[in-house]
Design a protein around this nucleic acid. Structure first.
Length: 493
RNA sequence: GCUCGUAUAGUGUAGUGGCCCAUCAUGAAGGACUCUCAUUCCUUCGACCCGGGUUCAAAUCCCGGUACGAGCACCA
């Protein structure tokens, strides 16, 4: 057997678990181009992070390029927010750990899209349709051609010019891609490519664009043309855009282009969060319900980073979820677990005493206590706690235990708001609690978010020389970020 | 309604016909370490939606069912 069929004897190596993202189809190192294309109608939120992180990771892995493209072609329903462009650029870089290789703004590229309308019209695979949305809906369901479909090339070009020159107003006409009204999937039947917007009433928020254009491409057309112009090789996006791929593939066939490889992910719900849409958040911020895009209650990138969530944690989180088409619901604890792994090694320890109770010390204890900044890393130094006034603060919930050990200090017997020194070494298995000296602590607030509500816990915080934004571990409580005015923003436990 | 898609432990994921009485992470429970209810380490728990079929062999292929989701916007 050894000689006749050696392969049967070969110890098959146990297949190892695939790490990270699945491979890209027909991808060559150095030759992939991916893109992330948000509508800049607000800064990035949690869900956008998936798009940018997954596409960005692939770009990195395959030594390719990532394009950040602003799909800002709607001035009416979800108009762009002027300041969002710059913010998104920064947030994208923060999330990725590198700058996107190219930045494209759709509203700068309208002439390119018009140029392709000309090709489409003169090639006879597009037409100007003057049916109302309602009328066309009926044609779509009954699988019948609308009358405009029969227009010759010349009349189509005339009608197109009427769209451009203002003869037509919004609703009068759209440009459609000629597919086939008998297609099985109703979504694909002669889909709309461009429409007219009232940019006098609703100018584009970018000053340089304003009311310059009346005819604007819809997503499927704009995105399809731009992907081709930019040489995009792989598109990874939500599965809600599957029919978009099918529509765009039909357009690509007309143009004689090859459609990029596609991958999709399913819907993600975070158990602890309700439904947030960018438009709704924008309204709620404008009405004062939230303080801004970085409000800690909001699932925005600004909100998350402000409460101490790290970009690397977000990256690990989204990479772990991968690109499956399943609709999933994840608990926040999963993100927090990634975050803890990132921050714990670097987080200085600090004491925050909730609802403090003052105890007078009696006995022969030290007057200065040194506590390591991080128990696992002595190199991070230590905190020196002065006890000149011999008074300490402990949490009210710890008071009443009777016998307590003040962490890294000494054992005490507690009664009547005073603490009697027992020993510096551990004398028994009494509970160890965190504490603060009145000499080296001051009033502070711990801000937490619980089911969409901000709550502020009053207490005292050990003195420190940390800076705003530093991530700390609050002993026996959890992790937090140093905020302004002696507040500490809770991250998670 | 029409069309498209997905279904593996509580949650998320690996697995593309024999390595699988199923991977890893998270979670829960227990333990070790630790002067934090942290970190680290160890142990345990726990799953292939249902029913047919193809095959010597199916989590993996096919059909049907069920469940969930998405598209059918002059939004992205």
């Amino acid at each position: 057997m050894q000689n006749e069929a050696p392969h049967l004897l070969e110890e098959r190596e146990k297949q190892t678990r695939r790490e990270g993202l699945p491979e890209l189809n027909s991808a060559q190192k150095g030759k992939v181009v991916l893109r992330f294309a948000p509508n800049p109608n607000g800064p990035l939120s949690f869900g956008h992070a998936r798009g940018i992180i997954i596409n960005g990771e692939y770009a990195k892995e395959y030594e390719g390029e990532l394009i950040l493209r602003f799909d800002d072609t709607d001035t009416t329903v979800k108009p762009p927010l002027p300041e969002a462009y710059a913010i998104i650029e920064q947030e994208a870089e923060w999330l990725l750990g590198f700058k996107p290789h190219r930045i494209i703004i759709a509203s700068d590229r309208i002439d390119q899209y018009y140029r392709h309308v000309d090709i489409m019209l003169s090639g006879g695979f597009g037409y100007v349709c003057q049916c109302s949305a309602d009328e066309f809906r009926e044609f779509r369901v009954s699988k019948t051609n609308c009358p405009c479909r029969a227009n010759e090339i010349e009349p189509n070009i005339e009608l197109w010019n009427k769209m451009l020159d203002g003869t037509f107003v919004p609703g009068d006409a759209v440009v459609r891609v000629k597919t086939d009204m008998e297609l099985k999937n109703p979504a694909l039947r002669d889909w709309p490519a461009l429409r007219i917007q009232d940019t006098i009433k609703n100018p584009h928020p970018r000053k340089e664009i304003g009311s310059k254009y009346r005819v604007w491409p819809l997503l499927d057309f704009q995105s399809a043309v731009e992907d081709h112009l930019q040489g995009v090789t792989h598109i990874i996006r939500g599965k809600d855009l599957m029919d978009s791929t099918r529509k765009q593939t039909l357009l690509y066939q007309h143009f004689g282009w090859q459609y990029p490889e596609t991958m999709y992910w399913g819907r993600v719900k975070v158990h602890e969060w309700g439904g947030f849409s960018t438009s709704q958040m924008r309204k709620d911020i404008e009405s004062g319900k939230f303080t801004g895009w970085s409000d800690p209650r909001l699932p925005t990138i600004a909100g998350l980073s402000g409460t101490g969530i790290q970009a690397e944690a977000l990256r690990n989180f989204w990479i772990e979820l991968g690109v499956t088409q399943k609709d999933i619901s994840v608990p926040l604890s999963s993100l927090y677990s990634h975050n803890t792994k990132i921050i714990d090694d670097d987080a200085p320890r600090i004491s925050f005493i909730r609802d403090p109770i003052l105890l007078a010390l009696s006995g022969n204890q030290q007057s200065i206590v040194e506590i390591p900044t991080h128990p696992n890393f002595p190199a991070m130094g230590s905190r020196k706690i002065q006890l000149n006034s011999q008074q300490v603060l402990i949490e009210s919930t710890d008071y009443g235990e009777g016998k307590l050990r003040l962490k890294e200090f000494a054992d005490f017997d507690i009664s009547e708001k005073s603490a009697e020194f027992i020993s510096q070494e551990r004398s028994d298995a009494r509970k160890i609690i965190h504490w603060a000296s009145v000499d080296t602590s001051s009033k502070a607030t711990l801000q937490t978010v619980n089911n969409g509500q901000i709550s502020k816990i009053e207490g005292v915080l050990e003195h420190h020389n940390l800076l705003k934004g530093d991530v700390v571990q609050i002993e026996r409580i959890g992790y937090g970020v140093i905020g302004e005015n002696n507040t500490i923003i809770f991250t998670h436990d």
